[in-house]
């Protein structure tokens, strides 16, 4: 596992020796290493405490700090059982349905924008028409719109449709509180960044390959499916990971469109945010619940770190 250098800043080839060796000599190396280790430990302790607490029996959690576990080790999986399936206490029904909701929201919330954005990026890059440059720039510029600016009107649109005065343009869709609203909202909000990033990559594909396809008689659709999609897999994968985590971790869009409470549609983040208030001091359950919600991103993070860093850095201005 390693955090690779991001592509944002291409590393110029170091001529003789890496620049850092000179700096390396000038600091006292042992002191620096100690400092870095101390900071790393400091950064890791809060997450570690959460994990340890989620594995301790309830009486231990309320009666003593998690650091006491080194003196009196005792572990259990009961908290996870309670929090996931049996519910009980104030956790009605457990978190399992919310976990499923998070998956149900995140998978289409990743696939839909990827499909639509890669189509648009291909057309903007390889099917030029009058105004295509202006259109691309407009889409790029739309990244400045924070999604807060669109939330309320979009919610009204999903519930009431769109009308200008007495003229109804889109009738009431009655989509309020369904998965469709979150899927569509995430797809919409992902568009500017997704098109921009995929366009950057797709526009760089070798021209002769594209021309060869045309000579062989492939139409635009065949070229897109057989050549563009397979060749742009690296950038599609990077963006897919970024978008999946973005949707999985999102709270604002979920709260706005499906609310925080209902086990039928609300995702983990919305439910946990709510439980943090109502569960108060039940740290045995809250820590287990929090860990359930972060375990998926952590798996993605540690297994796909190279793609992940690339996607995350490229998308760090999204929102």
């Amino acid at each position: 596992m390693s955090v690779e250098a991001p592509e944002v800043i291409p590393a110029s080839a170091p001529s003789r020796q890496p620049a850092v060796t000179a700096i390396r000599r000038t600091f006292s190396s042992r002191l620096a290493a100690g400092f870095v280790v101390a900071l790393t430990v400091l950064w890791t302790i809060p997450t570690f405490g959460l994990l340890v607490t989620s594995l301790r029996p309830q009486a231990d959690v309320t009666g003593s700090g998690w650091w006491n576990v080194f003196l009196h080790p005792s572990f259990t999986l009961d908290n996870y059982k309670t929090v996931l399936v049996s519910g009980g206490y104030n956790v009605s029904g457990g978190l399992l349905p919310y976990f499923v909701n998070s998956l149900v929201i995140s998978i289409p919330g990743t696939l839909f924008p990827l499909a639509i954005a890669s189509m648009a990026a291909y057309a903007l890059a390889w099917v030029p028409f009058r105004g295509s440059n202006v259109l691309f720039f407009t889409i790029f510029a739309l990244q400045v719109v924070p999604l807060q600016l669109a939330l309320l009107p979009l919610l009204q649109f999903f519930n009431l449709g769109l009308s200008i005065g007495p003229l109804t343009i889109v009738p009431a869709l009655h989509l309020g509180g369904t998965f469709f609203t979150v899927w569509i909202a995430h797809t919409m909000f992902a568009m500017p960044l997704a098109i921009f990033l995929l366009h950057n990559f797709i526009a760089q594909l070798p021209r002769d390959v594209m021309e060869a396809a045309t000579v062989d008689g492939a139409n635009f659709f065949l070229t897109f499916r057989r050549i563009v999609l397979p060749l742009s897999m690296p950038s599609i994968a990077a963006f897919a990971i970024f978008q999946f985590l973005w949707v999985w971790n999102d709270l604002l869009v979920a709260l706005t469109f499906v609310g925080g409470g209902q086990a039928t549609v609300a995702p983990l983040t919305a439910r946990l945010s709510q439980l943090t208030g109502s569960l108060g001091a039940r740290w045995d359950l809250l820590t287990a619940g929090a860990f359930v919600s972060i375990v998926v991103p952590l798996i993605v993070f540690f297994s796909l770190q190279r793609f992940f860093v690339r996607g995350l850095l490229a998308g760090s201005v999204k929102g």
Partner: peptide, 20 residues
């Protein structure tokens, strides 16, 4: 990796970690 890890966690998850 360890310093970068919080970036993968949701703000909600991070908030619970720190509220504790």
């Amino acid at each position: 990796s360890l310093i970068f890890m919080p970036m993968a966690i949701s703000f909600v998850g991070a908030s619970i970690i720190w509220k504790f």
